[in-house]
């Protein structure tokens, strides 16, 4: 017995089998190789490297500063419009998400074709970038807030439904079984056993998507989908950098404030 133990110590049994070690080592070097290769190529494409960027930085700062704060009242409306777009889009998406998320959760939708169909639909939805959506809707409905709201709604629906259906798939199924056993129908089971379990995450995710929407709506403004992004785009086009800087600062402040508030709400919920 003691002899065996000693021989084990001397042989020093490895923590992982040799084959696993070999595989992990190979994967590590392959990944390293990809990094090295892509670094090599991007370096080649960059004209001046990082040296030029530092010089440009000075020029940019000189152009943008000091910001022209006198336009604050004038851009206030556009900023509110952006927030409104984000609120409407998030709300509509949050409502539409509920049936889609339930239908694309494997543990609730046991009828497989339906589950696969909704999953595929949501996957397709997510493949379209928000900017492309905005360009399409601006083309359809003209410049303004409405195409922006539509684009944001579809964009956030894709994210929300996916994240929430994954939350649903990770719930404790035992209470659902209990509700079923006490004679509850599908809706009662969902309302009594599923909703209480996913409600905190649902709210948290909706707030998170709201934050994303505020930022995204700025970008969408660049292609004509209303809000503060539209103003920013105009000022940049007129080379009015002090004005543009004010817009950027306002966006920065608003995003920070909203993040702070929604973080507080989230902490209280979980």
């Amino acid at each position: 017995m003691t002899n065996e133990n000693q021989s084990l110590v001397q042989k020093s049994v490895p923590l992982y089998p040799a084959k696993t070690k070999m595989q992990v080592t190979i994967i590590f070097f392959v990944v390293l190789g990809i990094y090295a290769f892509s670094m090599f190529w991007t370096q080649k494409e960059m004209v001046n490297g990082f040296g030029g960027a530092l010089g440009n930085m000075y020029v940019v700062i000189e152009k943008f500063f000091p910001p022209n704060l006198s336009i604050l009242p004038a851009i206030w409306n556009a900023m509110m419009q952006t927030i409104q777009m984000a609120i409407i889009a998030t709300t509509v998406a949050a409502i539409l998400t509920v049936p889609l998320a339930v239908l694309s959760a494997q543990n609730i939708t046991t009828f497989k074709p339906l589950y696969v169909l909704t999953r595929t639909f949501l996957n397709l939805l997510r493949t379209i970038p928000d900017l492309v959506l905005a360009v399409i809707f601006v083309g359809l409905f003209g410049v303004g807030v409405f195409p922006g709201i539509l684009a944001l709604t579809i964009f956030s629906l894709g994210i929300l439904a996916k994240l929430i259906s994954e939350t649903i798939e990770s719930v404790d199924m035992n209470p659902l079984e209990a509700m079923r056993a006490s004679g509850g129908n599908v809706f009662q089971v969902i309302w009594y056993a599923l909703v209480p379990q996913v409600l905190p995450q649902f709210t948290s995710l909706v707030l998170y998507v709201f934050e994303i929407n505020i930022r995204a709506s700025v970008v969408l403004g660049l292609v004509g989908a209303g809000g503060i992004g539209l103003v920013l785009n105009q000022q940049l086009k007129f080379y009015n950098y002090p004005n543009a800087m004010t817009v950027i600062l306002v966006i920065f402040a608003v995003v920070l404030i909203i993040e702070y508030i929604s973080n507080k709400i989230r902490e209280a919920l979980i």
Partner: peptide
């Protein structure tokens, strides 16, 4: 199932709901 009640090993209560709501679920 309305006629046959069931008790489980892991109690199977909805943990985030209060006791009263859990008990009322028996009327579903």
């Amino acid at each position: 199932r309305t006629k046959v009640g069931m008790i489980f090993q892991n109690y199977n209560l909805v943990k985030r709901s209060n006791v009263f709501k859990n008990v009322l679920a028996g009327r579903l």
